[in-house]
Design a protein around this nucleic acid. Structure first.
Lengths: 140, 140
DNA sequence: GCCCTTTTCTGGAACAGTTCAAGTTTATGC
DNA sequence: GCATAAACTTGAACTGTTCCAGAAAAGGGC
């Protein structure tokens, strides 16, 4: 459904270009991919896109709120299509795999800081650290 | 109290060296500093330390659990002396400032993933995103 | 206190991911 | 279709981090 993705772009006043559609499609089909993988996925459709274009597009889409940038400590930047639901992530310390986790309680009771130090908080992010099933087996 | 810091090192079977003491002292006095700042702080005492030594030390201390590495999306790595308390961080989107936040509820009700996808979770990290007082004023 | 072994540090170079800049191409509105 | 402004291509620069080889220093035994 390319027109669907095009509509998303128009909704945020961004021009509809081949690279942007390809990036959106890649993120839709592959959640939590790093920039390098995005470039590879996009080039499967459009061999001529420069990595620059991908960086530009990811920035533009992030700024527009269509995709979300996630970057666990030490790893390279990853992106996911912003579904609008406030889910969180569980990251494998060993292999870096990322899985989605729905917010446990629904209304996030502890996601309001007890003492905000005068900060204006607009988002609370939760990252669970652990070991994925595959890596757990390897260890055991 | 250098001997205090030395004791921390000995407790985790690390040799007591000048650079390590300087890094520990720097982190104790300046929470949430980035690597560059650590290097500057250490060089205030020991002008000859290489950046390499600081990286080595930070890695060693992180592995030993004496310091904690925090790296909000897009920013460079920062370190803090690990106090053992499970506090979280509030990060300014504008200037990158970081403040400590005590865990709001004490017993962290939503810090257990609802569906762990088979992962073995050993830590839940919370990052609040917002705008610090100084930057808020600048905008207003 | 001195020597030996092992760890750690110094200095320099390499590397990955990301960003910057100039010029060309492409999408959009008329 | 045409003009204009945004987006893309190419290529190089930059930052933060890591790798490597040799020199220095810490810790333990004598």
């Amino acid at each position: 459904m390319p027109s669907d993705l095009a509509a998303q772009l128009r909704a945020v006043s961004l021009r509809v270009t081949r690279p942007r559609l390809a990036v959106l499609a890649a993120l839709r089909d592959h959640p939590h991919v790093d920039t390098d993988t995005v470039i590879d996925l996009v080039r499967a459709d459009l061999p001529m896109v420069s990595h620059q274009a991908v960086y530009n597009v990811l920035h533009a889409l992030t700024a527009a709120g269509l995709v979300r940038r996630i970057q666990p400590a030490g790893a390279t930047a990853r992106y996911e299509a912003q579904a609008g639901d406030n889910h969180h992530h569980i990251v494998c310390r060993s292999c870096g795999a990322i899985a989605d986790v729905a917010c446990a309680t629904g209304h996030a009771p502890c996601l309001t800081a007890s003492d905000d130090h005068g900060f204006v908080v607009d988002e609370a992010e939760v990252v669970y650290w652990g070991t994925c099933p595959a890596c757990s087996e390897g260890i055991a």
